[in-house]
């Protein structure tokens, strides 16, 4: 579904992505983790061309996303993106937020789009908030609307950029629950997150990044129990609470 071939990205003289290569298969859930500044957000933002690249190729569904004849809006309409800061449109209600892409980009009629929006908002547990304005929604509710907005594009794949990092802890669960459900329905997902419990339960593979490179690409069990790369080991030790003796992981394992 997604293919990176030797992707290079520079910010001025800073090499943000170094010869990154990897593949995401259809139906896979890949979690990208790593310390701050490792390039993980940059990496997924290159997929829908929010960030340009200076070298290498990125292919989505077999097509090079930077091919000159490729319409950038068409590409983006086919990829769902969920932001850390939700980025809902504050002047539109939840339903109108979700309806915007189907009506303006896919050319759906307003009636069909409204039905789709209502169905998706119900799916994420917000049937009672269909007409609410973003200012009247909690952070967790806003993020779920953002997920519904991405689903309204009927994309074959959804990208998540630290979807729960801006939420108070008690709301993280409701958003992760929606993401888990999408994964179980077979959605291809690429998730940048610090939520290691989610990664362990839901991910098919984990990419560990540091300093612009993918240092480890492994199944969750392997990654969490026997991390190979020394920096991965350090990362896991820093991020997870050590309990006496046992390899660290909190409730849910």
């Amino acid at each position: 579904m997604i293919e990176f071939v030797a992707v290079e990205k520079w910010y001025g003289s800073y090499r943000a992505l170094q010869a990154v290569s990897g593949r995401v298969q259809p139906g896979e859930v890949v979690v990208v983790c790593g310390p701050s500044g490792s390039g993980k957000s940059t990496l997924i933002r290159t997929i829908n061309r929010l960030e340009p690249i200076q070298g290498g190729t990125i292919r989505v569904q077999g097509h090079d996303i930077h091919a000159p004849q490729r319409d950038i809006n068409e590409l983006r309409a086919g990829i769902g993106f969920v932001f850390q800061q939700f980025n809902l449109f504050p002047h539109l209600s939840a339903r109108e937020n979700v309806m915007l892409s189907p009506t303006k980009v896919a050319g759906m009629s307003r009636k069909d789009a409204a039905e789709l929006a209502d169905a998706l908002l119900t799916k994420v547990g917000l049937a009672h908030k269909i007409n609410a304005m973003p200012a009247n929604l909690s952070g967790g509710q806003q993020q779920r609307v953002a997920i519904a907005r991405a689903l309204a594009q009927r994309p074959p794949l959804i990208l998540f950029d630290e979807p729960t990092s801006a939420l108070d802890p008690e709301m993280v669960g409701e958003v992760l629950a929606v993401m888990k459900q999408l994964a179980s329905e077979g959605m291809t997902m690429m998730v940048v997150t610090h939520e290691m419990g989610f990664a362990r339960e839901v991910a098919d593979r984990i990419w560990f990044m540091d300093a612009g490179q993918i240092l480890e690409d492994a199944a969750p069990e392997a990654f969490f129990t026997v991390p190979r790369h020394p920096r991965a080991r350090k990362f896991l030790a820093d991020i997870l609470l050590p309990r006496s003796g046992a390899p660290p992981l909190s409730a849910g394992s």
């Binding site: 200012a135 909690s138 952070g139 729960t164 801006a166 108070d168 939520e195 989610f198 409730a251 849910g252």
Partner: peptide, 19 residues
Amino acid sequence: RMQPAGQKTLVAGVVESAG
């Protein structure tokens, strides 16, 4: 423009899974 309750501005390393 006042923000609704529940939106954090600080990002901290989250430790526990919230399943």
